[in-house]
Write a protein that binds this DNA or RNA. Structure first.
Length: 803
RNA sequence: GCAGCUGUGGCGGAAUUGGCAGACGCGCUAGACUUAGGAUCUAGUGUCUACGAUGUGCAGGUUCAAGUCCUGUCAGCUGCACCA
């Protein structure tokens, strides 16, 4: 027997797999299709992180198992290659981002191949490839034509470092998610996508898919549906203001009104106010603050009264003062609120600061002069006219009915979700395929001009005012209007990185199609993705965006299913050995090249699956990796014990059937760590036996193959039944042989374990109880006492309760 | 502050969902083979005042029986952050 030479073995089988093309998925095969998907990587300059193989190995195991079970498996790979780090590197090193991308992709490819994933490399896609982004642009044009893309001048998050507009999702604690620079508010005309139009469907259709619960709740919370009412307040100036409230039951307690400083009416009223200067000063003060500063100072409420104007509470008829304050957000609801300090803690804080009246309208709480009473589940309406005596739950519909009858308000649903800012003032992204014509406005370019390729530029820096680098490509910009034939200019903003990743799973189904993003046949054969695994961090970004695009494509008849992914799971992070997040600055980064070189791909794969519960974060451990290497070596060294016998060794038969069952079930539940533990136990059993048969050995190898494909393929070549192990059948087990003939039962006295007895499997209750009562230790303990009760759980235990 | 997740040996983690807590692996201890051991094999390894008792963040409760269910509480991680 040779030594376990993982380096040669792994290289050998990777070459064979590639030559034989044995992981190629076939379109339109009569076999049952199975589509397993991992989030395609961003090919960064740092190369693969040890976190990547955790997700990739997990689904590789399922893909390999499905192939053995006779499915036509699609397990594809590609590159989400547009994006800022590449562009920043390109700027710094004066090299074209395309070249940077090529280099990084080559490195990632090498690393992924070295790990032996069963990807169908013939379907590789790259979001920066014009033949790919042609279809990203095509989808955008359809959105535009359906009125779901619109341009709007709006305050955006502006990264002072990247000099680029960011979506709310990309701003983390007031700084840029990517570069960490400060983010400030800036008004800029941006392309927006109306994801809000799909808000309700994005919530409702979650019922139809099999996503882990955490993902569902996080998406629901992010979309943030709330049911409330819009109420119209007349002002003494003759104007009126509509406010949004989820607590219209408290309307009698509304003692003042607050507008956001950016509210349209504020500018209109300004000239008529008695304290014009004060209000103006507050507005400009608020505008200067970034969103971060505003929230930083959250506890301390500020504001200014609009003197000279009052609002009229529509149910009490009383005049109430009007304020502006930056705790009211212009982007949510109507940008105006009715303030009920007795029952809202923010209003309460504000009322205390400005000495405003606090009127209790829900009784049953503590003194509202000391603290706001916000509980909606108990309490009775007081000081509220026709609502008095009702519970909050009764009062809300009663008030809505009243408002609707009087024509001063109506029921209204609001969402926290905001439209998607789709413009980036950057070079390395898909050009937006629109032109601006003085006469016709924004006009889409003709679909047969797609792809609209990026112009060649010498430098990729953004312009001084944050305008796109594309603005420098004069020849490219100036064009003619497809509509009227007159002079027109191209849009110079590009799309965000989320664009290309919102539909890539569709392209994998038919990656070389020039006439459509994928053929109808391919789409209906493969859709939807059966199993999609990815990081929790993408739950409210990529996952939501791609569901939105997919629903749109469904609406226009391009894709056959409402939802893109049938099942979604999520892996935990792999932390550094010190338990902290892996990062260069912490110096705890593990390099996949090094560990694969030192222990082999199979050991790394095995360890990444054995490291802990798949959905939880766990620290890396070189010692643990070594343990897995040792396990594989023990599997390898079992060769010394293989004898010529046929079938399973009688002594091992039960253990083998149990292990087949356990490993198969555990893979499906992503309980890879316990599946591997079960195989380790089987190996221990094998070592305890006199010898093992080829069949014993081959079962172990087959079960282990999805985790450690190279070593098992090598052993199969020596001991197997010919052909590739990757294409043989997944083993069956005999249920009858997974149960023992005799079972050890625990005997408890008063709930404490005192003895153990052996009984035949399936022994009757009477028989078991009798045997338990006769057990020696039990006899001693119950001697002279009364047996009150005997509880017998067949196959588990007997508990004797005595007094 | 709100939402979600997690608390089990020296460490990573198991526990068929209410039924033998600590599977499997690491580490550690002792022994064997060795010129040698960061190799391999064998045995042991939750804690304690060790015949016995005790033990799953903490405090109660339900039950014949609780890591698992209920009530309260503390700590850590992640996400959101004045969403009316």
């Amino acid at each position: 027997m040779k030594n376990y030479d993982y380096k040669n073995i792994e290289k050998k089988w990777q070459d064979i797999w590639e030559k034989e093309g044995c992981f190629h998925a076939e379109n339109g095969s009569s076999k049952e299709p199975y589509y397993a998907l991992i989030e395609f990587p961003y090919p960064s300059g740092q190369g693969l992180h040890v976190g990547h193989p955790r997700s990739y190995t997990a689904l590789d195991i399922l893909a390999r198992k499905r192939r053995m079970q006779g499915y036509n498996v699609l397990y594809p790979i590609g590159w989400d290659a547009f994006g800022l780090p590449t562009e920043n590197f390109a700027i710094k090193n004066k090299i074209h981002p395309k070249l940077v991308t090529e280099k990084n992709v080559a490195n990632f490819t090498r690393q992924l191949k070295m790990l032996g994933f069963s990807f169908d490399w013939s379907r590789e896609v790259n979001t920066t490839d014009p033949s790919y982004y042609k279809w990203t642009q095509w989808i955008f044009l359809q959105l535009f034509k359906k009125g779901l893309a619109y341009k709007q001048e709006m305050p955006i998050n502006w990264c002072t470092g990247c000099k680029v507009g960011l979506s709310n999702e990309e701003v983390v604690n007031g700084v840029c998610e990517r570069c960490g620079s400060e983010v400030v508010q800036k008004r800029k005309s941006q392309w927006m996508l109306k994801i809000t139009e799909y808000a309700q469907r994005l919530i409702d259709d979650l019922d139809e898919v099999d996503y882990i619960e955490r993902v569902k709740t996080q998406q629901k919370n992010w979309i943030g549906r709330s049911e409330g009412a819009e109420v119209k307040f007349e002002l003494t100036s003759g104007d009126s203001v509509v406010v949004y409230t989820t607590r219209c039951d408290t309307l009698f307690g509304a003692t003042y009104m607050v507008l956001s400083p950016e509210h349209d009416l504020v500018a209109k009223l300004l000239p008529t106010l008695d304290n014009k200067d004060e209000v103006e000063a507050y507005i400009s003060e608020a505008a200067k603050k970034s969103e971060f500063e505003r929230t930083e100072l959250a506890k301390d409420k500020t504001g200014a009264q609009l003197k000279g104007v009052n609002a009229i509470n529509p149910v009490t008829g009383k005049e109430i003062p009007v304020f502006i304050s930056d705790y009211v957000l212009v982007t949510y609801g109507t940008g105006a609120i009715m303030a009920v300090p007795a029952h809202d803690s923010r209003d309460w804080d504000f009322a205390k600061k400005f000495n405003l009246p606090i009127i209790e309208v829900v009784g049953g709480g503590e003194d509202v002069q000391k603290e706001a009473y916000t509980d909606v589940s108990s309490g009775t309406m007081v000081n509220s006219g026709f609502l008095d005596g009702m519970s909050v739950k009764e009062a809300i519909p009663a008030m809505i009915k009243y408002l609707e009858e009087k024509g001063i308000g109506k029921k209204k649903v609001n969402y926290k979700l905001r439209d998607w800012v789709f413009s980036r003032q950057r070079y390395w992204g898909e050009p937006i395929p629109l032109v601006y014509c003085e006469k016709c406005g924004w006009v889409p370019i003709s679909e047969d001009e797609l792809p609209l390729e990026l112009p060649e530029l010498d430098t990729f820096e953004p312009g001084e005012n944050g305008e796109s680098p594309l603005a420098k490509a004069t020849n490219w910009i100036n064009t003619t209007c497809p509509h009227c034939g007159g002079k027109a200019v191209r849009e110079t903003d590009t799309m965000p990185q989320w664009a290309g990743s919102s539909w890539y799973f569709l392209r994998y189904m038919d990656p070389h199609n020039n006439d459509a993003l994928a053929s109808k046949e391919a789409l209906s054969y493969w859709s939807p993705v059966d199993w999609y695994n990815g990081g929790m961090e993408h739950t409210t970004l990529h996952l939501l965006y791609s569901r939105f695009w997919h629903k749109f494509l469904y609406d226009i008849g391009v894709v056959p299913t409402k939802e893109p992914y049938q099942k979604r799971t999520s892996h935990g992070m792999i932390l550094g050995e010190n338990g902290e997040k892996m990062s260069k600055s912490r110096g705890n980064v593990v390099n996949p090249d090094e560990v694969v070189n030192d222990y082999g791909a199979d050991a790394v794969r095995t360890f990444e699956m054995f490291i802990g519960a798949f959905d939880q974060s766990t620290p890396w451990s070189e010692k643990g990796l070594k343990g897995c290497y040792k396990f594989l070596e023990r599997v390898w060294n079992l060769q010394d014990m293989v004898t010529d016998g046929e079938g399973y060794s009688p002594a091992l038969e039960k253990a083998i059937h149990k292990t087949i069952k356990k490993v198969g079930d555990d893979y499906e539940k992503m309980k890879y760590n316990t599946a591997i533990a079960a195989m380790m136990s089987l190996v221990n059993d094998f070592y305890k036996a006199e010898s093992i048969t080829k069949d014993d050995y081959c079962i172990l190898i087959t079960l282990l193959n999805p985790v450690a494909p190279h070593i098992t393929e090598e052993l199969w070549e020596i001991y197997g039944r010919g052909g590739l192990l990757a294409t043989t059948e997944w083993p069956e087990y005999d249920e009858a042989k997974t149960v023992d003939d005799e079972i050890e039962l625990v005997v408890q006295v008063n709930g404490k374990i005192k003895d153990k007895i052996m009984v035949a499997n399936g022994a009757s209750r009477e028989e078991t109880e009798e045997k338990a009562l006769c057990a020696e230790k039990v006899k001693e303990l119950i001697d002279g006492k009364t047996v009150v009760k005997v509880i017998c759980v067949p196959g588990k235990l007997v508990n004797i309760v005595v007094k």
